[in-house]
């Protein structure tokens, strides 16, 4: 079954872990060709929201709509349209870069696996290291490989959890350029980040979370720093 959508809508979503509330009544929307940034201090609920969008967590209350369907209605077909780059990268360190990509490509039913993987390795700048095991890669190399892994099946919704962590300036610039390409290709991109400089270059919308609540949701480009200063503790990242 093929399934596609052009909008993701979070409707009054809450999530509790036992008695602890991680998210409370969050509602927001993101459409094709938009990059939504989730900002907020540590423990604000950003990664929880990302996991809910990725269908890895079920909301305690509320719903997420992918087009007109919920995750339960769309089933596994929805997962074929989601790409998730977690902070943990989701790569097998004992496998080579090529083996990692080939494994996930086959799992996602990607056609012409070999060519697709070769292209992905080229995009990650890892053609020369394709037969090396991932455990020998730097954080930046693994991050680039993990991004290509998440994009192998051309997902509609791309979820990125702190994708700029540990990258040098050149890698950050390359990743930002890649995300601009994906936005132009009508993907829906949701990024958790603490990097305000990158956020200002990349985001179309910003959602600021604090203590599990959505304290700001704005599509006005240029007010990201203002929202961050207003709602997130003033610290060294706000310079």
């Amino acid at each position: 079954m093929s399934f596609d959508f052009t909008e993701v809508a979070v409707r009054d979503v809450s999530r509790h872990y036992g008695r602890r509330r991680a998210l409370a009544g969050v509602s927001l929307t993101c459409r094709s060709g938009e990059v939504l940034g989730l900002l907020g201090p540590n423990g604000a609920g950003k990664s929880t929201l990302l996991s809910i969008l990725a269908t890895l967590l079920v909301p305690s209350t509320g719903q997420v709509y992918y087009g007109s369907h919920t995750a339960g209605q769309a089933g596994p077909a929805l997962r074929a349209r989601l790409g998730f780059l977690s902070h943990d990268l989701h790569l097998y360190p004992e496998l080579t870069a090529r083996e990692n990509l080939e494994f996930f490509a086959r799992l996602y039913g990607v056609e012409a696996v070999s060519e697709r993987v070769t292209t992905a390795l080229g995009r990650a700048g890892l053609t020369a290291r394709s037969e090396d095991v991932v455990s020998g890669f730097s954080r930046g190399m693994r991050q680039r490989l993990a991004l290509e892994r998440a994009l192998l099946h051309e997902p509609r919704l791309l979820l990125l959890d702190e994708p700029f962590t540990g990258l040098d300036d050149a890698s950050v610039a390359a990743l930002v350029a890649r995300l601009h390409e994906l936005r132009a290709a009508d993907r829906i991109i949701v990024v958790v980040t603490h990097d305000l400089d990158v956020a200002e270059r990349l985001l179309d919308k910003v959602a600021v979370l604090k203590d599990g609540r959505l304290v700001a949701f704005d599509d006005a480009h240029g007010r990201i720093r203002e929202h961050y200063r207003a709602h997130v503790a003033v610290g060294d990242r706000c310079s």
Binding site: P76, R79, A80, Y92, P93, L107, G109
Partner: peptide
């Protein structure tokens, strides 16, 4: 423990397969 190390079990759970 291997699957936990890089959260690869979550990656398997995300795949559109049974």
């Amino acid at each position: 423990e291997r699957e936990r190390h890089s959260e690869t079990l979550r990656a398997l759970m995300l795949a559109p397969v049974s």
